[in-house]
């Protein structure tokens, strides 16, 4: 569950006031709005990368407002993927588990599993430079999913990729919904690309986040 209430952010001339929204556990919410309206800023606040001046953020019924990003257990995929280019694809996927000092066998098994799930198996030993847009986004997604976060934050992951890759990534995201069942907040400026993925639609009208498509009345079901 992601619950944001009364979120207020001020940075220079940019300001967002009193933003509130909720994504129920296991829900896939897509947040749309024009470029530059502050969607990414809201996402960064939920991830703990930006400190709001007021408001409360709850993840899985836990108040994380003052926790650092590491304490929030969220999987975060930034717009530019921000792949660690000094590591191999496999090491990128293993990063969160390595930081958590998990046993080597467990890390290797998880990396192989993610490699198969995301179609990255042939790339695992390759240094993570010169990846295509779609490959980079899959690596970024796998890296965020590796430690099994209950909340997944996606910042325009389908933005810089061609139509065929969008289709492939949407398929991957659908699989992730079925297998990992995280609560997802997916920021995008083109809602069409996430057809069939989202069950909740939120839109930024410039000042507020409005619920345009509420969660299904029967609760969240997984495809």
């Amino acid at each position: 569950m992601i619950s944001v209430s009364g979120l207020t952010i001020r940075q220079g001339t940019f300001a967002l006031a009193n933003i509130s929204f909720t994504v129920p556990a296991g829900g896939y919410a897509v947040l749309t709005g024009p470029t530059g309206c502050g969607k990414t800023t809201v996402l960064e606040c939920v991830a703990g990368l930006r400190s709001p001046s007021a408001g409360m953020i709850q993840l899985c019924d836990r108040d994380v407002s003052i926790l650092p990003p590491a304490g929030r257990n969220v999987g975060y995929v930034p717009q530019d993927a921000a792949i660690f280019t000094h590591l191999t694809v496999g090491e990128n996927l293993a990063f969160a588990l390595t930081v958590r000092k998990r046993p080597r066998a467990e890390v290797e098994a998880r990396v192989r599993e993610l490699g198969d799930q995301l179609g990255l198996a042939p790339l695992l030993n390759r240094r993570a430079v010169g990846l295509s847009g779609g490959e980079a986004q899959r690596v970024a997604l796998g890296r965020a999913l590796a430690f099994g976060p209950r909340v997944l934050l996606l910042d325009e992951p389908l933005n810089a990729v061609d139509a065929a890759t969008v289709e492939r990534l949407v398929t991957v995201l659908k699989e992730v919904r079925t297998t990992d069942r995280p609560t997802v907040l997916h920021v995008t400026h083109s809602p069409d690309e996430v057809k069939g993925l989202a069950d909740i639609r939120l839109s930024f009208d410039g000042t507020q986040i409005v619920l345009t498509v509420p969660p299904p009345s029967g609760g969240i079901t997984f495809p």
Partner: peptide
């Protein structure tokens, strides 16, 4: 951004600096 990602993956600021 790379550092931001490292922070969300469980690193402290120092950890993100050393590792990334």
């Amino acid at each position: 951004r790379s550092e931001d990602v490292a922070l969300t993956l469980g690193c402290t600021r120092a950890g993100a600096f050393w590792r990334v």
